[in-house]
């Protein structure tokens, strides 16, 4: 397993607003997430977890600092490419608390939309999508509309969608918050498996301490900076 960095962040700052309304969210964060690694990102509500993910995901522009995605430096005090969306759809898989599937597309269309936008042929995209759906035990729902599926099934479709473009990085913002504990464990194990099998760097925001033992490492936002902690032996056993 390669241990090179999938994500590298150096001296990252994020301020919202100006003067009176200035909010300093992140002040000088530096950390790495390796390929093949699943790290949990924990911090109190409002500490800037989503903001941090959105900066790594090339959605929210940082105030200053440097971001590397794999061997591509995407940000150094400014975006280094005009096409952040191209980076997003080619390199990153997003998973959220809610599934956010597109209601007028059926399951397989939801999964193949991004790969097809990337130029993968419909046939090839469908093949990848079917493999993913079968892997998640929802192959028989490929032609169903999201409205006909349960919450858990939709969340699995959403994960399949995040994987369909074969991302180098997965950014998961509280993916298990809406699931019961058994399903939550399943999802996190699944993410771990994907991290290893596909050599993907995964950051997962979670409030659920029970998920931490399943992760390789913990990142915490403390004093507007990011600190890394190993998962303690007790937690691992738990």
């Amino acid at each position: 397993m390669a241990t090179e960095a999938g994500i590298r962040v150096e001296n990252l700052y994020k301020h919202f607003g100006k003067r009176d309304t200035l909010v300093r969210v992140i002040e000088g964060a530096s950390f790495e997430v390796n390929k093949g690694e699943l790290v949990a990102l924990i911090a109190p509500s409002g500490a800037g977890k989503t903001t941090l993910l959105m900066m790594i995901g090339c959605v929210e522009e940082p105030t200053s600092g440097t971001i590397w995605l794999g061997d591509e430096k995407v940000y150094e005090d400014k975006w280094l490419t005009k096409e952040q969306r191209k980076i997003r759809r080619e390199k990153i898989g997003f998973i959220f608390q809610a599934h956010y599937l597109i209601p007028f597309l059926n399951v397989i269309e939801n999964v193949t939309l991004v790969p097809q936008t990337n130029g993968v042929s419909e046939q090839e995209a469908n093949k990848i999508a079917m493999e993913l759906l079968e892997y998640f035990d929802i192959g028989d729902k490929a032609k169903a509309m999201p409205s006909a599926l349960s919450g858990g099934q939709n969340q699995r479709v959403a994960i399949a969608r995040a994987l369909a473009n074969k991302p180098q990085i997965i950014l998961a913002d509280e993916p298990t918050a809406a699931l019961d504990s058994k399903r939550s464990v399943d999802v996190v194990k699944m993410l771990k498996k994907i991290a290893i099998e596909q050599n993907v760097a995964v950051i997962m925001v979670t409030h659920d301490e029970a998920m931490l033992p399943l992760c390789d490492r913990i990142l915490k936002i403390e004093d507007k900076k990011v600190v890394s902690e190993n998962v303690s032996v007790q937690e691992k056993i738990l």
Binding site: K86, R89, I92, F94, Y100, I102, F104, L113, V114, T117
Partner: peptide, 18 residues
């Protein structure tokens, strides 16, 4: 009515042109 889906499409990298 679809603004949320549109936002999600933009987020996951679907270009404006589409």
């Amino acid at each position: 009515e679809k603004i949320k889906e549109i936002a999600i499409m933009k987020l996951v990298g679907i270009p404006n042109s589409m």
